[in-house]
Each structure stands twice: as C-alpha cells, then as structure tokens.
Computed example of a mutant assay.
Amino acid sequence: MEGKDIVVTGGLGFIGSHIVDELVENNRVTVTDNFSSGKIDNLKYPNHENLKIIKGDLNDLDLDKILKGTDYVFHLAALASVPESVEKPLFSNENNLDGSLKLFVAAKNNNVKKVVFSSSAAIYGENPNIPLKETEPYMPESPYAVQKAGSELYLKAFNESYGLNYVSLRYFNVFGPKQNINSSYAAVIPNFIYGLLNGRQPTIFGDGEQTRDFIYVKDIVRANILACESDYNGIVNIASGNGLSINQLYDIITEVLGSDIKPIYEDERIGDIKHSIADISNQKNIGFTVDSNNFKNQLKETIKWFMDNPQ
C-alpha cells in the first residue's frame, strides 16, 4: 500500500502502533488516540513527516474534519477489557459502540473507500461448535462482546444502506512485542513472560485447561492491510486455527526461558471463555494465511522484546 491517506484510530496502542509503523513510510497516516493505554513510545517513527497524531476520544473529535480526503480507516480504538466492561458497562459502551457509530457515520459522509474494524472472538461466547465459523450466531457473555458485535452489525448495515465497504477482523488471542502486561489482548503471554523474567510465580485463572488460539501481532498487521486491499466485504476470523491450553502455553514459555518456576492457580474470572479456536477457512477471501509452525520463534521474539524493554 502506497500513497494513501489513512486514519488509524487507537494508533498508539499495542496493535495500532504496529500498523502505523508498517504504513507510515509510504502513506500519509493520521492517528487518533486518547492516550488511555496508547503511548508515543510505541511508535518506531514518532516524528515521521508522514505522521499526524491527534489526541482525543472519538466521541469528542471532529471526525468529519479528520476523515476528509481519507482513503482508508483502520479502527482499533476501544476500551479493550472484558472485566472493565462488566464493571462499567455504560462507560464501556460509550467508548466502544457510540464512538464506533460516530466514526462510521463520518466514514460514510466522507466517502472513505474502506473501513477495517478490529473486532474480537469474544462475540462467540461459550459456543461449543469448535472450530468457530464466522456464520455462528452472536453469543456475547460480556458488555465488551456485545459492543464488538454491535459495531460489526452497524458496518454490515452501513454497507447495505450506504455502500460503505468494510471488513470486520475477529481477532482471537493476539501477542507480540509492545504488548502491555495490563492489556486484555492475550495478556496471559506478557504476564507469564514478565513474571518469569522477574523470578515471580505467574497466575493461571481456572484449571489452565482452557484453550486459546494465539496469533502474532505482525500477522495481525498483514491481515489488516490485506483486508483493506481486498474486494471482500464481511467478517474474517484472524487466528492460527490451532488451540493451545494455558497449561501447554506455560510449559512452552518456561522451556524457552529455561525456567522451573511453577504457576499459581486462582479462581476463573467472570466473563472468561473456556474454549476458543477459530475456523480459518474464510481467510482466503482476503488472501491471508498464517504459518502456525512459527509460534515458538514468535514467542522468542516477544520474550526478547520484554528482556530489552523491562516494564
């Protein structure tokens, strides 16, 4: 992708900053971020001549002005926490659904060519039909999941009503460099790494037999760009298609680190899902594939980043 005018909401966050880093050298990129979890330090080129950073919430910004002349929008801004959405559903809804709707209206008003929305596998809930297909019904078990589902539905309606092109990418468990240990995106990996590097016993919630489908952040970046450049409108699971239990994950990380520290087990958390594995057959619609054999090397890259950037 080259020579485009692009807006990245939440562009200072974990995933958003990786997307900005990839795009900013060959495109004009505007980032919106309220700095609640994102930070300038996440960017590789914070002073790049092609980069403009606007501080503020989507609900407060003049989005029509920001999106004027924009080719593509990557929408990642969100209060991305299941527990916090349970504790503060109104606040979470304002950030995740109201802000998204305002953005979609501005995208429609300004003839944006495509919106790529960062959705979540949380919308599947405790669906037993593993692996999970995009055609499965919404079964949200938290306000956060409801808000992601609502944004997906708004995009579908905007496509049918106004011709706004979109792809909703349902991320499963994302990990990689720059991940905050307090992030809800697969926070289990940075917490395991951070704890073990500091000689502490990490916590596993529940019995550790819950399964997750992990996906590397650099694959997420590639999926976003491919989705943007594709002719596809709809929903795509972004995952490896392979399930890994939290206990298995812990064993792999301790093996890579050469650690013999044992974890602490605590009660499972409200809203957490037992099993989550994706059907990835729909990824062909955007030309995306994942090399699932590279997982251990990706973990090593992530561990190296944490060693070089102690939090």
Results as ranks from 00 to 15, higher is better:
residue 177 P to M: 13
residue 107 A to S: 15
residue 109 N to G: 07
residue 191 N to H: 03
residue 130 I to D: 03
residue 113 K to P: 11
residue 101 L to V: 11
residue 185 Y to F: 10
residue 100 S to M: 06
residue 190 P to W: 07
residue 97 L to H: 03
residue 89 P to T: 11
residue 154 Y to G: 01
residue 168 S to N: 13
residue 166 Y to H: 11
residue 180 N to S: 14
residue 122 A to M: 05
residue 146 V to P: 00
residue 160 E to P: 00
residue 151 S to N: 04
residue 144 Y to G: 01
residue 95 N to I: 07
residue 97 L to Q: 01
residue 156 K to H: 08
residue 154 Y to I: 06
residue 172 F to V: 12
residue 176 G to Y: 11
residue 133 K to E: 02
residue 184 S to T: 00
residue 179 Q to A: 11
residue 93 N to G: 14
residue 171 Y to R: 07
residue 173 N to D: 15
residue 112 V to T: 13
residue 134 E to W: 10
residue 173 N to I: 08
residue 101 L to I: 14
residue 154 Y to L: 09
residue 193 I to A: 13
residue 104 F to I: 02
residue 174 V to I: 15
residue 152 E to T: 03
residue 187 A to F: 13
residue 182 N to T: 10
residue 193 I to K: 07
residue 164 L to S: 02
residue 120 S to C: 05
residue 151 S to M: 01
residue 160 E to F: 01
residue 165 N to P: 03
residue 170 R to G: 13
residue 124 Y to K: 03
residue 93 N to I: 08
residue 92 S to A: 15
residue 172 F to Q: 15
residue 104 F to T: 00
residue 190 P to Y: 04
residue 168 S to K: 13
residue 163 G to Q: 03
residue 133 K to Y: 00
residue 187 A to C: 12
residue 135 T to E: 09
residue 161 S to V: 10
residue 165 N to C: 03
residue 96 N to D: 14
residue 120 S to T: 12
residue 126 E to L: 03
residue 180 N to K: 14
residue 151 S to F: 00
residue 98 D to P: 00
residue 117 F to C: 06
residue 151 S to G: 14
residue 123 I to R: 01
residue 188 V to E: 14
residue 95 N to R: 01
residue 130 I to F: 09
residue 117 F to Q: 05
residue 126 E to M: 07
residue 180 N to P: 08
residue 119 S to C: 11
residue 136 E to M: 14
residue 167 V to E: 09
residue 114 K to T: 04
residue 132 L to E: 06
residue 182 N to C: 01
residue 158 F to Q: 10
residue 135 T to S: 15
residue 99 G to M: 08
residue 134 E to T: 13
residue 162 Y to G: 02
residue 161 S to T: 14
residue 191 N to D: 07
residue 128 P to R: 01
residue 178 K to S: 09
residue 148 K to W: 02
residue 168 S to G: 12
residue 121 A to L: 02
residue 107 A to G: 09
residue 112 V to F: 06
residue 106 A to D: 08
residue 190 P to N: 10
residue 181 I to V: 15
residue 102 K to V: 06
residue 181 I to A: 11
residue 161 S to E: 07
residue 153 L to W: 09
residue 178 K to N: 13
residue 170 R to A: 07
residue 134 E to C: 04
